[in-house]
Amino acid sequence: MFFLSRALRSALTLWAIVSVVFVATRLTGDPTYYLMPAEMPEQQRVELREKLGLNDDIATQYLRYGKALVRADFGRSFFSNRPVADLFFERVPNTLLLTIPAFLLSVAMGLCGGIWAALRHNSLFDRALTTATVVMQALPNFAVGIAAILIFSLSLRLLPSGGMGTWKHMVLPVITLALASSANIAHLVRSSMLEVLAQDYMRYARSKGLSPAVVVLKHGLRNAILPVLTILGLQFGGLVAGAVVTETVFAWPGVGRLVIDAVMKRDFAVLQFGILMFSTAIILANLVVDLAYGLLDPRVRGK
């Protein structure tokens, strides 16, 4: 029952997103200006539009697109004429190469920073971290990325400024991507941990003669992590969105760049598919979070 209503709501969400994107892309202009030089005769332009199905009114196009979707036909790129799913999925590994390390890094930094700050409440470290998290959450990804390039690539010449190749190419984009979300997580872990540390069961655990590590990590963290889980799902969405920007800044050939290029060139099918996939990923991430909740909190499981 839970899954059924959940699946239904997810499908509705996806449908709404697809529709909005479909209409919005068509409002942005005519892709044929990118497909052929501006000085080409109008006659040829009309023929090309006819061929691409862009002359029909928007409702007809929408219906045609919907029918194709049901057959899992997502269309082809106007430019390379390749199926968009192929274009997209061949680049997924590149993006995962950034997002997975960034996600792990941000969780690790967020947990360590947050726990330490809570244990040393009101210490210098705690104050510094709190300030830093606010700053990092406020800084946009592209600014951090460009600053990182200026410092580490141009001035210090330690790391490449863009492209893909060695592990060195990964360092800056991964850190850029992880920074904001680690700040988010640290902030939340800290406040959640502070609350947990004041709980009766923490003092009770100490009265049993357990080591501080067991008290904090086993008894504390397991409880403190629960409110953080919700944010982790959202963070994942943030990483996807962040990847779009970060891949552009660092010239990283992932799906983010693919989608940005599709926006620039009005490659409708590619753009629509990209956003459909991003949305699906975020919905799945949140589903995983809900399942993890049931796993970690026995009080939720019973209901």
């Binding site: 709980q199 009766d200 069961y201 009770y204 409880n223």
Partner: peptide, 11 residues
């Protein structure tokens, strides 16, 4: 402890 409901760890 006085309150077993809050002293026992819920998870």
């Amino acid at each position: 402890f006085q309150e077993p409901a809050t002293a026992l760890n819920p998870v």
